[in-house]
């Protein structure tokens, strides 16, 4: 019985394959709109699973929201407008790219300020060192001690 069923499936598949070797249709028409939906949903956070982007999530809400974004994109709304629409409803939490505002200044500029501070600190330290440090990589005595310790077998 199972075999017959399987054979039937195979025949059906062959038939279908030969009869309608068709171009696969895009899931959604409109290349520009889809690109916008993809771009946006990759930067938005799914609220149900919370650790996936809207683009990646399979949850129903994510599906609905993608649909909503698609509808807005079709109406010609800009990225900014669509993002604002979602932020109005769910808050800044939905944005994986945090908006630049007073509470996130430190987030956006902190790393670069740190880099600058690190660079300046490093330079000053190197300059000071160059002048002051004594040239004592390893004294002969120390080197002997190191080698003795390393070569000591127990």
């Amino acid at each position: 019985m199972k075999l017959i069923f399987r054979l039937a499936t195979v025949f059906c598949l062959m038939f279908i394959a030969s009869a309608w070797a068709d171009e696969a249709r895009p899931l959604h028409d409109g290349v520009a709109v889809e690109a916008q939906v993809q771009r946006l949903s990759e930067e938005l956070r799914c609220l149900v699973c919370q650790n996936q982007t809207l683009a990646d999530s399979h949850s129903e809400l994510a599906e609905d929201l993608r649909q909503e974004i698609r509808a807005m994109a079709t109406k010609g709304m800009s990225d900014q407008q669509i993002t604002d629409y979602l932020v109005e409803r769910y808050g800044d939490f939905v944005r994986y790219r945090p908006p630049l505002k007073s509470t996130t200044l430190l987030l956006w500029f902190g790393p670069f300020a740190l880099l600058l501070a690190g660079g300046i600190g490093l330079f000053l330290m190197l300059r000071r060192r160059e002048k002051s440090a004594e040239d004592l990589p390893l004294s002969a005595d120390e080197a002997r001690k190191v080698n003795a310790l390393l070569n000591k077998e127990s």
Partner: peptide, 8 residues
Amino acid sequence: GIDYGVYG
């Protein structure tokens, strides 16, 4: 639900 920001 979306208008009200329902997520759970």
